Amino acid sequence: MTYKAILNGKTLKGETTTEAVDAATAEKVFKQYANDNGVDGEWTYDDATKTFTVTE
Protein backbone atom coordinates (compact mmCIF):
# COMPACT_ATOMS: atom_id res chain seq x y z
CA MET A 1 0.00 0.00 0.00
CA THR A 2 1.25 3.50 -0.80
CA TYR A 3 1.21 6.14 1.93
CA LYS A 4 1.94 9.84 1.53
CA ALA A 5 3.41 12.40 3.90
CA ILE A 6 2.99 16.16 3.58
CA LEU A 7 5.70 18.15 5.34
CA ASN A 8 4.87 21.69 6.43
CA GLY A 9 8.10 22.47 8.23
CA LYS A 10 9.72 25.81 8.89
CA THR A 11 12.74 24.84 6.79
CA LEU A 12 11.36 21.97 4.70
CA LYS A 13 8.08 21.79 2.80
CA GLY A 14 7.05 19.06 0.41
CA GLU A 15 5.64 15.59 -0.05
CA THR A 16 7.05 12.08 -0.05
CA THR A 17 5.60 8.60 -0.41
CA THR A 18 6.48 5.14 0.85
CA GLU A 19 5.29 1.60 0.30
CA ALA A 20 4.38 -0.06 3.60
CA VAL A 21 2.36 -2.99 4.90
CA ASP A 22 0.32 -0.77 7.23
CA ALA A 23 -0.10 2.78 8.51
CA ALA A 24 1.99 2.17 11.63
CA THR A 25 4.98 1.10 9.53
CA ALA A 26 4.55 4.08 7.20
CA GLU A 27 4.33 6.42 10.20
CA LYS A 28 7.69 5.17 11.52
CA VAL A 29 9.31 5.74 8.11
CA PHE A 30 7.86 9.25 7.77
CA LYS A 31 8.72 10.30 11.32
CA GLN A 32 12.31 9.16 10.82
CA TYR A 33 12.46 11.05 7.50
CA ALA A 34 11.09 14.20 9.14
CA ASN A 35 13.50 13.86 12.07
CA ASP A 36 16.46 13.37 9.70
CA ASN A 37 15.44 16.61 7.97
CA GLY A 38 14.92 18.65 11.15
CA VAL A 39 11.12 18.75 11.00
CA ASP A 40 9.35 18.31 14.35
CA GLY A 41 5.70 19.20 14.72
CA GLU A 42 2.12 18.02 15.11
CA TRP A 43 1.22 14.89 13.14
CA THR A 44 -2.19 14.00 11.73
CA TYR A 45 -3.31 11.02 9.64
CA ASP A 46 -6.21 10.73 7.19
CA ASP A 47 -7.07 7.05 6.68
CA ALA A 48 -9.31 7.78 3.69
CA THR A 49 -6.41 9.22 1.68
CA LYS A 50 -3.59 7.32 3.47
CA THR A 51 -1.92 10.68 4.11
CA PHE A 52 0.16 11.83 7.06
CA THR A 53 0.70 15.55 7.61
CA VAL A 54 3.24 17.18 9.90
CA THR A 55 3.05 20.90 10.66
CA GLU A 56 5.64 22.89 12.59
Results as ranks from 00 to 15, higher is better:
M1Q: 14
T2V: 13
T2P: 06
Y3C: 04
K4W: 09
K4A: 05
A5R: 00
A5N: 03
I6H: 05
L7P: 00
N8H: 09
N8R: 09
N8C: 12
N8W: 12
G9S: 09
G9T: 15
K10S: 11
K10D: 07
T11E: 10
T11D: 11
T11W: 13
T11C: 14
L12W: 15
L12R: 07
K13L: 07
G14R: 12
G14Q: 12
E15F: 14
T16P: 02
T17P: 01
T17Y: 14
T17C: 12
T17G: 03
T18L: 10
A20H: 02
A20Y: 02
A20R: 02
A20G: 03
A20V: 04
V21M: 13
D22M: 03
A23L: 09
A24R: 09
T25R: 06
T25P: 02
T25H: 13
T25Q: 13
E27A: 10
E27G: 07
E27S: 07
K28M: 12
K28D: 06
K28W: 09
K28V: 10
K28I: 12
V29H: 12
F30D: 00
K31L: 08
K31F: 06
K31Y: 05
Y33K: 03
Y33F: 11
A34V: 07
A34F: 11
A34I: 05
N35I: 15
N37L: 15
N37H: 15
G38E: 06
G38V: 03
D40Y: 15
D40E: 14
D40T: 13
G41P: 01
E42D: 11
E42L: 11
W43R: 00
W43V: 03
W43H: 00
T44W: 07
T44M: 09
T44R: 07
Y45L: 02
Y45R: 00
Y45P: 00
Y45N: 00
D46T: 04
D46I: 04
D46F: 04
D47P: 14
D47K: 08
A48P: 06
A48I: 11
T49G: 04
T49E: 06
T49W: 04
T49K: 06
K50D: 01
K50W: 05
T51V: 06
F52S: 01
T53V: 08
T53Q: 06
T55Q: 07
T55P: 01
E56K: 02
